[in-house]
């Protein structure tokens, strides 16, 4: 037992002491499996009840558990897809590769999709990375900025001669993904507690959008022309440019009507937050 009331040996520490102590402790926590612990172990009092080593171990173990739990919260369906063992392994590998720099653990998993797409052996299973990307997009939509949404009347009020120059602002929660694997179907089945088929690979990537209506997140796939048009307005294209781009898929005579139809659809889905003309 330590007598915490008893003054210890007289010592005049310099401010370097505090910095060094914290750096040693942090190094130990971040790399508990590989690093020499002697530095920090020498700084800590061990007792008959618990050695310095086991006391320090509480911190390094808690660090990993806590961050794995954070990943599990954001990537719960990825966890189901890959199974407990693989999830724990990939989460541990990620925790070691990306020490947290964020204030709120909600942001800790931001690089997991990229990590899974580029790090073997996970990169050999592209459905893993795509599932992670899909779940991350859902979290982004969940707490993205609020914004007003346009109503059909707002569009109807635009004078006919202003339509060509009209540009749009999408709702800040809108996320776009192109997925080769039908991971959203798997996500939906798990969410509905239905039998889930392992994700299948599509012949071509399929476009998806994920966004928030009021407080709830939604997603749906997009036909190729609609995906192109949505990406175009997001990057600032005006209505006339959208119409001429759509001619790739639609007869020139119908392009304007088709573009107007897409726009009305987006407005009714609460995807459009502003327009300028």
């Amino acid at each position: 037992m330590i007598d915490a009331t008893k003054p210890r040996e007289a010592r005049t520490p310099t401010s370097k002491d505090l910095a060094r102590l914290q750096q040693d402790f942090q190094n130990y926590v971040l790399a508990a499996s590989t690093l020499d612990h002697a530095g920090i172990e020498a700084e800590v009092v061990g007792t008959t009840k618990a050695s310095a080593k086991s006391r320090l171990g509480i911190y390094s173990e808690a660090y990993r558990l806590r961050l794995i739990e954070a990943l599990d919260t954001d990537y719960i369906t990825l966890h189901t897809l890959v199974g407990d063992d693989t999830f724990e392994k990939l989460a541990l590998a990620y925790v070691d590769a990306y020490p947290s720099k964020v204030y709120n653990m909600r942001w800790f998993g931001a690089q997991l999709p990229e990590f899974l797409k580029t790090t073997p052996p996970y990169s050999n299973y592209p459905a893993f990375g795509e599932m992670a990307a899909f779940e991350w997009a859902l979290t982004l939509a969940f707490d993205a900025d609020n914004a007003p949404v346009l109503r059909i009347e707002d569009i109807a009020a635009v004078p006919g001669d202003a339509w060509a120059d009209m540009t749009f602002a999408c709702h800040p929660s809108l996320q776009r993904l192109d997925l080769r694997w039908n991971v959203p179907a798997f996500w939906k089945a798990i969410g509905n507690e239905e039998e889930a088929q392992a994700p299948q690979q599509n012949e071509f990537p399929i476009a998806w959008m994920i966004w928030r209506r009021d407080l709830d997140s939604y997603f749906r796939s997009l036909p190729v022309d609609e995906a192109w048009a949505l990406d175009a307005i997001r990057s600032g294209a005006n209505f006339a440019e959208v119409c001429s781009g759509l001619c790739e898929w639609i007869d020139e005579l119908q392009a304007a009507q088709h573009a107007a139809g897409l726009l009305k659809g987006w407005v009714s889905e609460q995807l459009i937050s502003g327009l300028k003309y």
Partner: peptide
Amino acid sequence: WTGVAGNNLHDLMPLPYTEE
């Protein structure tokens, strides 16, 4: 303290009880 050099250990790390 919760981390140094921009890291966050997401834990409430104890301080040494020194004058410094």
